[in-house]
Nucleic acid binder design. Structure first.
Lengths: 218, 218
DNA sequence: ACAAATATTTAGTTTTATCTAAATATTATT
DNA sequence: AATAATATTTAGATAAAACTAAATATTTGT
């Protein structure tokens, strides 16, 4: 199997969790199911092309230019996933393999028009954010207090507070982190608000709202 | 540039005009902008795989299996062209290059669903027919007499008759072969019929209808 | 800080697609 | 039918990606 430069760029990007950290030769080799020596060869080449920063024995990271390429691939991948689910009856767990191929198609007009055709979606079918043409992510995790517009729905995630009253509140309302869907219903002047969980509307205080975080899905 | 097996299959198919004729090594080389010796190497390989029939010095043709692959590529290419024009605001003269990439994407479900999404189109934006999943073409060139349903539009093409009255008829009605658009309006029991040409409806005899051929575009 | 374990690179080999140039086969011309 | 022109194949060279195994650097554990 012959791997493309784009495949290497993606691997470096994903191993660095999109944060442009340095990743090791072995990590890249393992991820790509190839040998470390092959990775060394390729990252030297990527370095020559100005796509990656490579210091022998110190690992690789992407240059700004390399990141742009990676983000463009992520953008294309996720837009195609939306297309497959919304227009071609794919389910969210079927799309990855095909999007993996489609993301390599080269045409700026194609991507721009696809984006427009889909109504400029912010997230893919897995809820992952779609970077803009310029490579920027919309912030998808927001504090319930003051940051979430009425009508928005999302999933409860990571909570700062672990005090007894707060955990009791979660328990009482059947909220489990990572999978409970919330809809913002109404917001009061004092920051307290109404949310809908599992068809029931409940009122929560501003104090609790300040500690609940929502991963926006729509 | 490194050419894929699929690229070779396409070249052989197109040079043979889709009729599975034998094509020469040099013709393939010229079409693909590569050297004859490279072609020899590849067609040997295709022959080993059961995709092509190769007799040294006698040229290549596709096996039945090879033809299936070629038709599947044509099908994908043309479906994607329809998609680009109908859904993504491409014009018909912009689509080729992108479709050239998209046709290599491998997913049966993708093609089936795309076909469905587009409403099972019969022709691409250039008016070329789209083969079915089984590799069959709908006949797109039909005799005006008895073969064309009311409402159908198409382009006047190849005429059998070259008698003076017939040519006079064409001239009088401003019909030029290859680009005049016709719409079938009404058909009489005796085979004479009304057609619309350039916003004018004219009546033609069954004799003339038997000699006019229409390339269906819609 | 040293030795052992692990990670990375280098050197040299293999594979594959391509090319050039020479050799051979086919086709065209007289 | 013989020769010239053209087409095709073969043999061997080059380039690129990937591998193995050995060499070298870094990290870990005591």
């Amino acid at each position: 199997m012959t791997l493309s430069e784009e495949d290497y760029i993606k691997a470096i990007y994903h191993l660095g969790k999109g944060e442009n950290t340095t990743v090791s030769t072995n990590a890249v080799a393992e991820q790509m199911e190839t040998k470390p020596s092959s990775v060394t060869d390729m990252i030297k080449k990527l370095s020559d092309k100005g796509v990656a920063n490579y210091k022998p024995y110190k690992g690789v990271s992407l240059t700004e230019y390399g990141q742009k390429i990676a983000l463009s691939l992520v953008r294309k991948h996720r837009l195609w996933e939306v297309f497959l689910v919304e227009n071609l009856n794919f389910s969210w767990d079927e799309v990855h393999e095909v999007a993996e191929q489609l993301e390599h198609i080269k045409s700026e007009k194609l991507v721009d028009q696809l984006d427009k055709h889909l109504g400029f979606p912010q997230v893919d079918p897995h809820g992952d954010p779609i970077p803009s043409k310029k490579g920027e992510f919309k912030k998808t995790i927001k504090k319930l207090l003051n940051e979430v517009p009425v009508g928005t729905s999302g999933i409860c995630v990571g909570v700062k507070d672990s005090s007894t009253p707060f955990l009791k509140f979660l328990d009482k309302n059947d909220i489990s982190l990572g999978d409970t869907v919330l809809v913002m219903e109404k917001e009061e002047f004092d920051g307290s608000l109404n949310i809908k969980i599992k068809e029931k509307i409940i009122h929560i205080s501003n104090q609790i709202a300040a500690n609940l975080y929502l991963k926006i899905t729509e």
